[in-house]
Design a protein around this nucleic acid. Structure first.
Length: 577
DNA sequence: GCCGTTTTCGGCCCGACTGTTTTCAGTCG
């Protein structure tokens, strides 16, 4: 049983306990543990087998949950969870996804009416049975009814890149309103998470009514969910929820801090404030006086808010309560920026499945101001993409030789290849061909469903090939679409380290592979990470910034990344000079 | 259920909005 599966069991247990009305802190403990487990770069099973480590060393995992992890790893089951599932049909949990219907109300519906499915709930609403329950009314019944269809799609999160397009439109729309003095998009969008579930907007405005009216005029609006004096929530036709908060200028920084999150980061910050006799909320930092009154200490800027707690202003990407508070002692890392990138080392041309010619891609690289690019078309196994055989590849490299004269002094053009790692293991093209290139990427495209050992052996084998420089998209995951393959990344990292090889952070917004947790782990091992576009057309080169966002979440600095260096320095890293 | 430089017990973040209430519980973020 892997970490994701263990975390899912704990989440399920938390859901069921919540439904039962259990102690809320106990429920939180399960959820915290699930989060911790999901962000571990090592498998729980490996930690259990390693006598030098204890599960209880990890935050949020105590004696009890460590034992439950062990039971899950050994048996794949959790007796406590199975007992609960016997009492509560899993289908009732679907009710919790209906906006406005939480565990308390759902429990009443289940207990009083015996309803356990969304269909049963729909019928009860239509028969006006829900409004008869204590604490319910006609309005609640209507909310539930119209929320049932939403429940199916409610927790769909969109790629950050897609959220960004929406944010730009919202920004333009709101900025044209009169009296909006400040405007920030907070939440997971600001933290640069790979996916975004809703949009949080924060403003300082002369009139909150005008700001809200303006949001109400947004063309994609489907419904206004709530609107009060300072807060408004709307749902767009795409089902995306947008929340707007209007705050006073002296609270703007505090509100930014508060609404940027993450929730877990803020819980920690609040705890630190409390230890110091301070209170922090979206309006500011306050000193709690002996008589119970409160004095405003800070709140105008985020820097002020953190400074009031003797904390540095954490970059939003680090605010996950992973290890950012521990980093304070040694100083926060200076996170990488788009400007640090001096080359792109993974792209395709129309020789295979790209849309633009070799020269067009080179010109695009020059337009980006890069020192170098690597042309890395597919190898022959990827027949669907018209992959290159030895003859066509060598022909392309000859052309590059000629183009190097033409573009001398403007950009370095590396002879590269994205060479397929074959299903049975081994590289798609022979070593005597590969060794004539500058930059060989190895990647898996076929046999993604193979067992862990087999697929790991293939990747490790590729890294041991002296011609290979880097593993592209090492887990193969596609966000929201395809799970990662069952690769043992510990073994991959170990091998990369021993052989002075690199791993890729593929910047395509659907891949972002490696993810933040594994990039952080690779950095910890001292393995350089290449952030590449995998562009299949000129505009495809623009995705680098999504990769940078992910890299920042992993705490990467310029020094951790391959293509912030000159090509000569990269060759040194590879031990080739 | 977790955690500890006041603590091994008694805390565990906190405010806005809605609906159903006559002062508050539930939900959400």
């Amino acid at each position: 049983m892997n970490n994701a599966q263990i975390a899912a069991k704990f989440e399920m247990l938390a859901d069921l306990l919540e439904f039962q009305g259990a102690n809320s802190f106990r429920i939180r403990a399960y959820r915290n543990a699930a989060r911790t487990i999901e962000s571990l770069s090592q498998q729980i099973s490996d930690i259990l087998n390693d006598t030098s480590q204890k599960l209880t060393d990890f935050e949020g995992i105590g004696k009890d949950l460590a034992e439950k992890c062990q039971v899950l790893v050994e048996t794949g089951k959790l007796p406590q969870l199975e007992d609960l599932q016997k009492k509560i049909p899993p289908s009732v949990l679907a009710m919790l996804r209906i906006p406005g219907l939480g565990p308390k109300k759902a429990a009443v519906i289940y207990k009083e009416l015996g309803i356990s499915t969304l269909e049963g709930l729909r019928e009860a609403c239509q028969d006006e049975k829900i409004r008869a329950l204590k604490g319910f009314g006609a309005k609640t019944e209507q909310t539930i009814l119209s929320g049932i269809d939403l429940a199916a799609t409610a927790d769909q999160r969109v790629y950050w890149a897609k959220a960004d397009k929406l944010v730009q439109r919202l920004r333009e729309h709101l900025e044209s309103a009169k009296g909006i003095e400040k405007l920030t998009f907070a939440g997971s969008y600001r933290r640069g998470k790979e996916t975004v579930g809703d949009i949080d907007i924060l403003t300082v405005a002369e009139s909150s009514n005008e700001a809200m009216d303006r949001l109400g005029e947004f063309p994609d609006l489907e419904e206004v969910i709530a609107r009060g004096d300072t807060k408004m929530s709307i749902r767009l036709a795409s089902n995306m929820q947008v929340d707007l908060r209007v705050v006073p200028a002296k609270s703007y920084g505090a509100a930014m801090q508060y609404f940027t999150g993450s929730k877990e980061h803020n819980v920690k910050v609040r705890g630190i404030a409390k230890q110091r006799g301070l209170k922090i909320n979206e309006y500011g930092v306050f000193r709690v006086n002996d008589d119970g009154s409160e004095t405003y200490v800070a709140g105008e800027t985020e820097e002020d808010v953190y400074a009031a707690l003797d904390l540095p202003c954490f970059p939003p990407e680090l605010r996950e309560n992973r290890d950012e508070f521990k980093l304070v002692e040694t100083g926060l890392p200076k996170l990488i920026t788009v400007e640090d990138i001096v080359g792109d080392m993974h792209m395709h041309t129309d020789a295979t499945d790209g849309l633009n010619t070799l020269e067009e891609m080179i010109e695009a690289g020059i337009a980006k101001g890069y020192q170098y690019i690597a042309i890395t078309d597919h190898s022959k196994r990827v027949s669907m993409a018209n992959g290159l055989n030895a003859e066509r590849l060598l022909e392309q490299w000859k052309t590059i030789d000629k183009l190097r004269n033409k573009y001398d002094g403007k950009i370095q053009i590396l002879k590269g290849l994205e060479c397929d790692i074959l299903e049975q293991g081994g590289m798609d093209l022979p070593d005597e061909v590969l060794e004539q290139g500058d930059w060989i990427i190895a990647s898996v495209h076929y046999g993604q469903g193979q067992p862990k050992q087999q697929i790991t052996d293939r990747i490790v084998g590729a890294l041991e090939n002296p011609n290979v420089c880097i593993i592209a998209h090492p887990t193969g995951r596609l966000i929201n679409r395809r799970e990662p393959y069952e690769v043992d990344l510990d073994a991959v990292f170990q091998c990369a380290k021993e052989n002075k090889k690199f791993v890729e952070l593929n910047a395509n917004p659907a891949r972002l592979d490696l993810n933040d947790v594994y990039c952080h782990a690779a950095k910890g091992q001292g393995i350089p990470i290449g952030i590449n576009s995998d562009g299949h057309k000129i505009e495809g080169l623009d995705v680098i910034r999504y990769g940078i966002m992910q890299a920042r979440r992993a705490g990467l600095t310029k020094e951790d990344v391959v293509n912030t260096r000159s090509w000569d320095d990269i060759r040194k890293l590879l031990g080739r000079v």
